[in-house]
Amino acid sequence: MKKSVFFGTLAAAGLVAGFAAAGTLDDVKARGELNCGVNTGLVGFAAPDANGNWSGFDVAICKAVAAAVLGDPTKVKYVPTSGQTRFTALASGEVDVLARNSTWTFLRDNDLKLDFVGVNYYDGQGFMVPKALGVSSAKELDGATICIQTGTTTELNLADFFKANNMSYSPIAIDSNAEGEQQYLAGACDAYTTDASGLAATRAAFANPADHIILPEIISKEPLGPAVRHGDNQWGDIVRWTLNALIAAEEYGITSANIEELSKGSANPEIDRLLGTSGDLGPMFGLDNLWAKRAILASGNYGEIFAATIGESTPIGLARGLNAQWTQGGLLYTPPFR
């Protein structure tokens, strides 16, 4: 699989030599469709339904960007990528933006020549075990067999965590979340480890979610965010500020219910600038003035997206926690729109 990706990369690179350096924005506009790299299937974050329509927390980013750039949130081609293929897909130009719960790290930002444009979910790595195992802390996992997705930061954190605590484990390498779920349920491993949000999403899809617990230890920082290719600053800015617009909309109380009313003019000049009622922010990076309004209309503001896809009322049931607005004690804080 890797080889085919590699040769595909070479071939694609050969065909579009010289063309790839042109602006991604122009490419997307000319194509009339946004290629968005997503997870192969992680309920709540990115998963297709029975009709093949993708939905989820990460998918909402794709929709918002498509709405901002192309004016239509449905003009997205979702490209499922595994932990192994995601960065190659982005680097080779197969996707324009990667919204696939990927951790922002120094190495990926610099050595892999990606640009993470922000954080849409502050996560950390956790462990899930069957209740019947009688384990209540990750420190009790000495000697356990652990399922782990290859090509991820979690793989490295796991090695570090067990080394730091002077414990041993045997890793079982798996390729996708679906395979991990199957192996874990078959008892091929005692524990499954990935980002805590991913664990919650995986558990929600089990037949008996209550038979499994997520251990309290969070062993790493996993800031997940959308990424673009390094070097195309205009495109990076568009994705970055689309994400910021969604977060700011929640902060300023712009929802999909009241956005039409607010865009007629409001008491808050910042809302006016954001929604394009006043000022001309959009043309500064090659879009029109209504880009943010369309992005918010795509699936609502950050809070609405969170509540609809992974929030406490969904089967996944994640609390806002660190992902609340800074005014609510969370870490979400956008630079001002001016």
Binding site: G83, Q84, F87, D111, G151, T152, E155
Partner: peptide, 16 residues
């Protein structure tokens, strides 16, 4: 394939 062409490739990003 699993070490050099799998995890090492992914962790270092040195596909070629």
């Amino acid at each position: 394939r699993g070490t050099l062409g799998g995890i090492t490739l992914n962790q270092t990003g040195r596909e070629l």
